[in-house]
Design a protein around this nucleic acid. Structure first.
Lengths: 341, 341
DNA sequence: TTGAAAGCGCTAACAG
DNA sequence: CTGTTAGCGCTTTCAA
């Protein structure tokens, strides 16, 4: 492990002071003779010098890194979101630190504290909502963006999709296609805005059509709950006596394990049985018939988060010391598939 | 943006020197009176002090962060790998910085340099192979792990799967199921070991069965190439005059767009037409019939990378200054599905 | 156009 | 048991 070359080494070799090298590194060429400038350039090249970002940051607490805290980075939403966020940040020389909470409030707190100690310059979180006070306190120190789940946290920006409206539209779409009953399958709301809003949207649609809402709660970890959900669907199908019914899941992760169980039922898709989900799983176009779904603008959300953070991190804080807090809502759209017709 | 509390603040408030506080923070309680210790604990709690990781790291160049450089973080391999890597690292208080190269050698170089300046303590890369010299140089300064693509880089560890053997097995599996021709669809090898090895495995199997190899090259970005591939399959099926044939793709990302095209052919799956792929896409179990595939131990690779890096980062370098370089191969396994029978 | 010097927040000898 | 002191590598006044 060789010793790393420092600004001092460059200064010595070039026969100038470290101040001058520092100036060169920071592009302040105007106060420097062309000769000195060229000399330093050559030495830096020769020695392969790269400034220690740590030392640079120590003074201004600028680490050129931004953290993303998500429930599970393998969730399709997170994958797309993180990727586009990462792309934007990289373009501005920022690094993305990714952390997982698994949805656990204690872990979330620890992770956030640790990130704070690491002096990240900003944070974007898919939070569970339990650490609101902590996040509000952090929002006073650095830009904080809450994504996907639009909890109300003082000082934090939010980026989400129009869950309620899009969910309502999907349910209406199903009713309009002639499905007399739409069974909504979701996870326990657990106070999570996204889930609550999607459920509300479904209920809005039921109310609009004066149809009774049928909500089935499942637990993704629990296969039994999925089987029970399929059982409920089966019973309702029988009770419907041939009238078309549909299943609409609150997200793609629920539909995944449920899909096979539903297809095993003796119900013809889409004629007497419709299927749809919020989210657009990558397999939606591979199954036969293709799956009707709600596409979230995942990439746009990531890009928007990146832009927002960079603007806040770069820019001087607003004159009154408190910048505008953005609440961005990016609309989702229905992608009709063969599973509803 | 309030001023952050420093070790000095704590020292002042507690009426001790910063050294003592530093000792407390680093858990060296033995050299400290119980009274002092309690006093400091109280003040830290009161002020909500958290040591500045930047300043801590400046001295020892320990940033508690490790970087992962991948081609595309949304690739299924990367998603699973990064997640399990992240989990391991977090458990040891390390942060994971994720960067993308898009497979571009220049970007890879820039990203790596930038990470170097950031003083990450180690790197794991899914490299394109063009920056071997740079990586070898870095491997002299910090632990470097090459994952997925087992390029030979001096001083770097590698973690990969047994691509050639697993690919051979899959091809043999297909021949054994009675498919007389197995068409292998892959991307341009581009010098990437993973691709070369999988192709070799297929060729090994063809040689063993004394069957001519049929390799079709496609470009994932190019729909036309996929259609041409499907065309080749169609022609071969006709030439086979009812004899069963199969398609075997080099990875799941190729199979995804190809799948629909192949299913549109008038060929019965699996009786006269078999389908299989390297990788296990999450939709493999959702389509009907389920898709036969090769499951890579993605999570294990991530966990192994994490363990390896942490061991090397923590441990003192070996006495001779050059630690053992690990070449880890984790085996893949065939997951039989209904698409071959 | 340049450099000396004072830190940024923390750790680690070395003395008491 | 505790404090003094000297940096880690770099930026930034303030003078020259």
């Amino acid at each position: 492990m060789e010793k790393r070359v420092t600004i001092q080494d460059v200064a010595n070799r070039a026969g100038v002071s470290i101040t001058t090298v520092s100036r060169y590194v920071n592009g302040r060429y105007e106060s420097m003779s062309a000769k000195t400038r060229e000399r330093i350039r050559a030495v830096i090249e020769e020695l392969g010098y790269r400034p220690n970002a740590l030392a640079q940051g120590l003074k201004a607490s600028r680490t050129k890194s931004i953290a993303a805290v998500v429930v599970n980075m393998s969730y399709p939403f997170c994958v797309g979101f993180l990727r586009s966020l990462s792309l934007i940040l990289t373009r501005s020389g920022y690094h993305l630190i990714v952390s997982e909470t698994g949805g656990d409030a204690d872990i979330e707190r620890d992770v956030v504290q640790s990130l704070l100690a690491q002096r990240v310059e900003a944070m974007v979180l898919q939070t569970g909502g339990e650490n609101g006070d902590l996040l509000a306190a952090i929002a006073e120190q650095m830009p904080v963006v809450l994504v996907d789940r639009a909890f109300a946290v003082a000082g934090a920006h939010t980026i989400a999709t129009n869950n309620r409206e899009a969910s309502r539209e999907m349910a209406l779409h199903l009713f309009d296609r002639g499905y007399r009953h739409v069974i909504y399958v979701t996870e326990d709301e657990a106070g999570i805005p996204t889930r609550i809003e999607r459920l509300q949207g479904y209920e809005d649609a039921c109310a609009a059509r004066e149809v009774a809402a049928t909500v089935v709660h499942v637990n993704r970890q629990d296969v039994g709950s999925m089987e029970r959900a399929a059982g409920v669907v089966s019973e309702l199908a029988q009770a419907a006596k041939g009238e078309p019914i549909a299943v609409y899941t609150a997200n793609g992760l629920i539909m995944m394990p449920l899909y096979r169980l539903l297809r095993q039922l003796p119900l013809a898709v889409p004629s007497v049985f419709g299927m749809a989900t919020f989210d657009e799983p990558d397999w939606a176009q591979l199954v036969d018939p293709t799956l009707t779904c709600v596409r979230q603008p995942v990439e746009e959300m990531g890009a928007e988060a990146g832009r927002l953070l960079l603007k806040r991190v770069h820019g001087k804080p607003a004159s009154d010391g408190r910048a505008e807090v953005a609440r961005i809502v990016l609309p989702s759209h229905i992608v009709p598939g063969g599973s509803t017709k």
